[in-house]
Simulated assay, not measured.
Amino acid sequence: MSFNVKLSGVMPALVTPFGADDKIDFKAFENLLTHFREAGVTGWVPNGSTGEYFSQSTEERRQVLQFVKDFARGDEVLIAGTNAPATREVIEQTAMAEEIGYDNVLLAPPFYTRPTQEELIRHYETVLAEVDVNIVLYSYPLKDGADISFELMDHFADNPRVIAIKESSGVLQCAIDIASRYEGKIQLVSGSDDIALDFMFWGAESWICGPSNCMAKACCELDRLYRAGELASAKDLMKKLHRAMNILESGKFVQKIKFGAELQGLNVGECRAPLGPLTDAEKAEFAAAMKPILAM
């Protein structure tokens, strides 16, 4: 187990490509990952909500984790999404990831069940006790129906295996509060893509990024510009990214991400039900917003 993992740079929350037969298309997956590596990503986050883990069988999740692990280089960080609605299943998924070779997992509150903070603390404690991995907490209350509170983060602040939190509430004040309260203890990870530059300013050195599936070069360039101190250029690029990211957040997120990949010749197929296809109008709107980004 590698404790005190330092997260940095852009790590795609990976889509899962599906073929016309609705099976995972691993050739398309390889093309996608190769494109991301050339763009400059620093790691891989498979089996998150952008990867449609909720529509996959356990065997498919295993195949995705194994494929990404086999593709990854030693200097690229691996973080497996192992979410599920029940603690028992989270432990099973996390143990599977650990067996394949993942030291780190991304864990939101169990969806649908809306646990109290006391129940949620017990949930994470149980996972840590059962499986020897590091946890990146994932706060996305709009999707999961549960907050990750300061009470919870206070509880885990001195636990070296709770290494970070991906903050996706969309409320910048939350990111500022986390950066202020847990500096040197829990790393802040950018998870609100349309304010990613603000996150960087407040100390987020890493970005687990769904939009990087369709704008990897631009996302990596934003990260590079900020690190180089080229703030005016970073601000200009964020303006260019902002419209496309807003459209992504307006609904049909994964469908638009996959369509955006397709615009670059990276065919990753359709989403699985219940996610349905985009309308022609939705495609046209997103394609227009992507045009200046793809022209970079």
Rank of each mutant, 00 (worst) to 15 (best):
S2T: 15
F3A: 11
N4D: 15
G9W: 01
V10L: 03
P12E: 03
V15K: 04
T16Y: 06
T16A: 06
P17Q: 05
G19T: 05
A20W: 04
K23H: 13
I24E: 01
I24W: 04
D25S: 05
F26R: 02
F26S: 06
F29E: 01
E30M: 10
E30C: 11
E30F: 10
E38A: 10
V41R: 03
T42K: 15
P46W: 00
S49K: 05
Q56C: 07
T58Y: 12
E59N: 11
E60N: 00
R61S: 07
R61P: 05
V64E: 03
V64K: 02
Q66K: 14
Q66F: 00
F67W: 05
F67V: 11
F71I: 04
V77Q: 09
I79R: 05
A80Y: 00
P85Y: 12
A86N: 12
T87P: 02
R88T: 11
I91N: 10
Q93F: 14
Q93D: 09
T94N: 06
A95T: 07
I100K: 02
Y102W: 00
D103I: 05
V105H: 06
A108K: 01
A108P: 15
P110C: 07
P110H: 03
F111R: 08
L120N: 08
Y124K: 04
Y124L: 08
A129N: 15
V131M: 10
V131W: 00
V131K: 06
D132N: 15
V133T: 07
L142D: 11
D144V: 14
G145C: 04
A146H: 06
E151F: 09
E151M: 07
L152F: 03
M153E: 05
M153V: 08
H155V: 05
A157C: 12
N159C: 12
A164V: 05
L172K: 13
C174N: 15
C174R: 15
C174S: 14
A175N: 01
D177G: 07
A179K: 12
A179Q: 10
S180I: 09
S180F: 12
R181E: 14
K185S: 10
K185G: 04
L188M: 08
D193T: 04
I195A: 06
M200H: 13
W202M: 11
E205S: 14
E205Y: 09
S206R: 03
W207T: 02
I208Q: 00
G210A: 13
G210K: 01
A216Q: 01
A216N: 04
K217S: 10
C219M: 02
C220H: 02
E221D: 10
E221M: 09
L222Q: 02
D223S: 06
R227I: 08
A228R: 13
A228S: 14
G229P: 11
E230N: 10
A232W: 10
A234K: 03
L241G: 02
N246C: 14
I247Q: 04
L248Q: 01
K252T: 00
Q255R: 05
I257F: 03
K258D: 00
F259R: 07
N267H: 09
N267M: 14
C271D: 02
C271V: 07
A273Q: 13
G276P: 04
P277Q: 14
L278P: 01
T279H: 09
D280G: 03
A281I: 11
E282Q: 10
K283I: 08
K283Q: 15
A287H: 11
M290T: 06
P292I: 11
